[in-house]
């Protein structure tokens, strides 16, 4: 099977479940292929969980775990715990949900910062250190976290360091009335996720990830990425600007997107199409900018418009 064919099958499969959101689906898949993690911030009921499940179900052999984050959730609930085995008188490690291929961290901002941080190492380094013991995570480890942008009562906003670990932040948003009617029709009898058959194997996904790493990226565009990300530093409305990790993520996600587009090189349009998703959530706005109604996405959009793009 060729690489683009796998990508397109995967995309078609997920899109058949998550209707009306082809761009978001592609970007989320690209994020996965790039080895990053995605934060979905959206209203309840827009299909965040469905998206995660659909991705998991389309991949044969992919493990899918889901953690509902609550204020009393403990780090060990995520990472796992060693329990004394009375028969052998030895501690036996019970791996937590983090040992999986795809992890859905639902309403991640409801857990305490301590628990949120438990994910930090896992997301950043693909490993978990539990009781001094290092455990490597699977090569395809992909976190889809969701959070509700409306309700703030009883939530712990993600710390900046945690935010920076997410390659992208996307929003699904509401679909058109026609699409919504189609969703209703789909789910009259059974849920389409249940009907979804796997379209790719776990190995194929790993191949896709390798292919994405080999997508060609010109020197000039590397400069463009650095300039674009660097423009957030020193922007008067920005208190905390995007890090080099943002540049890295922007490059990797653009490479993965190129795979989905069937290209073997990255064009500036690709970079621009994901720049806001990759950069905006890492920025902390200056208070006066925040209260005068500026948004991080808008600032990134302005920067895209103002930064000279290679022609």
């Amino acid at each position: 099977m060729s690489i683009p064919a796998t990508a397109s099958r995967l995309e078609t499969a997920v899109c058949s479940v998550v209707r009306g959101q082809p761009e978001v689906v592609r970007r989320v898949l690209a994020c996965m292929i790039s080895g990053g993690h995605v934060l979905l911030e959206d209203f309840p009921g827009t299909g965040k969980t469905t998206l995660a499940k659909a991705i998991a179900k389309s991949i044969r052999g992919a493990m899918f775990k889901r953690v509902q984050f609550t204020p009393d959730l403990l780090p060990s609930d995520i990472l796992g715990i060693s329990v004394l085995d009375p028969r052998t008188q030895e501690f036996r490690f019970h791996p937590g949900p983090v040992f999986t291929d795809i992890l859905l961290a639902d309403e991640i901002n409801r857990a305490s910062p301590r628990t949120q941080s438990a994910l930090l190492e896992a997301m950043g380094e693909r490993q978990a250190t539990i009781e001094g013991q290092r455990h490597d995570l699977d090569g395809m480890f992909f976190v889809i976290a969701t959070q509700n942008p409306v309700e703030f009562r009883g939530t712990y906003p993600l710390p900046e360091a945690q935010m920076d670990r997410f390659s992208m932040q996307c929003a699904l948003g509401y679909v058109s009335a026609a699409e919504e009617a189609a969703i209703l029709a789909d789910q009259t009898e059974t849920h389409p996720v249940d009907r979804l058959a796997p379209v790719a194997t776990r190995e194929e996904i790993l191949e896709l990830m390798a292919a994405a790493r080999h997508v060609r990226f010109s020197e000039e565009l590397r400069h463009y990425v650095v300039t674009l990300v660097g423009a957030t530093r020193g922007h008067p409305s920005v208190q905390l600007a995007a890090s080099p990790r943002a540049s890295l993520a922007l490059m990797k996600v653009s490479q993965a997107l190129a795979v989905f587009q069937g290209d073997d090189f990255v064009s500036p349009e690709l970079i621009q199409s994901v720049a806001a998703d990759v950069i905006a959530h890492r920025i902390v706005l200056a208070p006066e900018a925040k209260y005068s109604g500026a948004s991080a996405r808008q600032i990134v959009a302005d920067l895209i418009e103002q930064t000279p793009v290679p022609v």
Binding site: G230, A231, T232, R233, H235
Partner: peptide
């Protein structure tokens, strides 16, 4: 900040 005067390619 210096970033506004970023180096060009």
């Amino acid at each position: 900040a210096a970033a506004k005067i970023a180096t060009t390619y």
